[in-house]
Amino acid sequence: MTVYWGIIGAGKIAESQMAPAIATASGHELVAVSRRTLDAAQQFAVRHGAQRAYDSVEALLKDDQVSAVYVATPPHLHARETVLAAEAGKHVLCEKPMARTTGEAREMIDACRAGGVMLTICHYQRFNARHQRIRRLLEEGAIGQVTAARINFSDRFPPQPGVWHHDPRISGGGPVMDLGIHCIDLLRFLCGPAESVSALVETLVDSSPVADTATLLMRLANGTQAVVTSHWTTANHEPERANGLEIWGTKGSIAAAPISAKDSAGTLRVLTEYGMQDYLVEPGGPRPHVALLDAFGDAVAGESPNPIPGEDGLAGLAVVEAAYESARRGQRVEVQ
């Protein structure tokens, strides 16, 4: 079975990651793209072998060959475009953050359920080969009962002309929505859902409508205590080390970095009473976006479950909203 893709928002992330992944993955074909300007859409289509280009979402969704769409527009458009796709009978792979609010996320889930189509969220870090190994190690009890975890995903990212991330009407928030949402989802994948959160979400450096520095202390449903740090205010001259995760248990620990590698490249170290084991993935390793597409195609064919359902994206946004509420109230907040 071939999944015939249309890309909604053929911009930077589609250019560098998803279009090449579609070209690489078996059983996937890019047939149509849309951008606000037809010329830009046509140029993208030529670069990536798509047959047709459109200057509107509505036009692309009328394309009968398209069976699934990748929504890669800014977050304020995700809900509308996902609902339109569901009404047109197209399966949806939506970029993170899924939406600006949990309310928008629920609208997306309801629309896809009503349309009988699949909604998957592009939390690609679950498919990093090192993170897949970590999940297997945890399931095998390699470090005993997990009691603590920490993930950092930060960089220096001041406001820039023409960049929408600092506009809350478009992005929904600052680094928690941009980078922290990855950490929250990765914790859910590896250690389980969050139950409550205490947070500092503040503007420390830049004059911006959104906060630029955030630290979340979460209690997971299994009792694990987890810390997520997500900043736009920290110069990151060594991302291959700084943007990483650590998980501690009663019998050992696991450390991996970087969490964001688009080819799974990086380090993974397991330390127990039996010694230290290192797992290194060299540059050019397994691409998470390709693995995600493989899982998406299997799910569309009915051969496996939806790899990252909309409900998981909704759960991440619920943690973000609880973090903002905690920061406002100065106390721990239960995740709804």
Rank of each mutant, 00 (worst) to 15 (best):
L84N: 11
S16W: 06
D55G: 09
P288N: 01
A40P: 01
C94I: 03
T37Y: 13
D312C: 04
V333D: 05
A25N: 04
L268T: 00
A318S: 12
L268P: 00
V117T: 12
G173S: 07
V117G: 01
Q225R: 15
I8H: 13
G116E: 12
A255L: 03
G174Q: 05
I22G: 07
H231K: 12
S171K: 10
C122E: 09
R169T: 02
A21G: 11
E273D: 12
Q331E: 15
E87T: 13
A23D: 03
N152C: 11
I184D: 04
R332A: 05
K12R: 12
T101N: 05
A88W: 12
Q331D: 04
F44A: 03
V205G: 02
P158Y: 10
E58G: 09
P161R: 12
G285F: 13
D55K: 02
E195R: 15
M177S: 03
S26L: 07
G192D: 01
G162I: 14
S260P: 00
A291V: 03
T224E: 07
H231I: 03
H91D: 13
L245R: 12
S304I: 09
Q65W: 10
Q277D: 06
A149T: 08
E202C: 03
P239G: 14
P175K: 11
R100N: 15
R188G: 05
M218N: 03
A14D: 13
V210F: 07
N152W: 09
D63R: 08
S326Q: 06
I109E: 02
G115R: 09
I22L: 11
R150V: 13
L314M: 08
T233W: 11
T120S: 14
Q277C: 00
I22E: 04
G180K: 05
E29H: 12
A99H: 08
S230M: 01
G173L: 11
G180D: 04
A19K: 09
L317V: 14
